[in-house]
Simulated scan of single mutants.
Amino acid sequence: MTVTFPKGFRSAGIAVGLKSTGKPDLALVVNDGPARAAAVVFTSNRAQANPILWSRKVAQNGPARAVVLNSGGANCFTGDFGYETTRLTAEAVATALGSDPNGDASDSAADDILVCSTGLIGTGDQSFRDKIVGNIPQLVQALAADDTTAPAAILTTDSVEKTASHEGDGWRIGAMAKGAGMLAPGLATMLVVITTDAHIDNEVADRALRGATGGSFDRLDSDGCMSTNDQVTLLASGASGVTPDEEEFAAALAAVCDSLAAQLQADAEGASHDIDIEVMGAASVADAVEVGRSVARNNLFKAAIFGNDPNWGRVLAAIGTTEAAFDPYQVDVSFNGVRLCHAGGPDRPVDECDLTPRKTHVLIELYAGEHTATVRTNDLTHDYVHENSAYSS
Rank of each mutant, 00 (worst) to 15 (best):
K57V: 01
K57S: 08
V58E: 03
N61P: 00
N61M: 10
N61W: 00
G62R: 11
G62V: 13
A64S: 15
R65E: 07
A66V: 11
V67W: 03
N70Y: 07
S71G: 11
G73C: 12
F77Q: 13
G82E: 12
T85M: 09
R87V: 03
L88Y: 10
T89R: 01
T95C: 05
A96D: 02
A96G: 00
G98Q: 04
P101C: 12
N102R: 03
D104T: 09
A105I: 03
S108N: 11
D112R: 08
G119W: 12
I121S: 06
G122Q: 05
D125P: 02
F128W: 07
G134H: 14
P137S: 10
A142K: 06
L143Y: 00
L143D: 04
A144W: 02
D146M: 02
D147A: 12
D147Y: 07
T149D: 15
A150I: 11
A152Q: 02
A153T: 09
I154E: 11
L155Q: 11
L155Y: 03
S159E: 11
S159W: 04
S159I: 04
V160Q: 14
E161K: 13
E161F: 05
E161V: 09
S165V: 05
G168L: 14
W171P: 10
W171I: 11
I173T: 04
I173Q: 02
A175S: 07
A177L: 03
K178Q: 15
G181L: 12
P185W: 09
L187W: 10
V192P: 07
T196I: 12
D197N: 08
A198K: 03
A198L: 11
N202H: 10
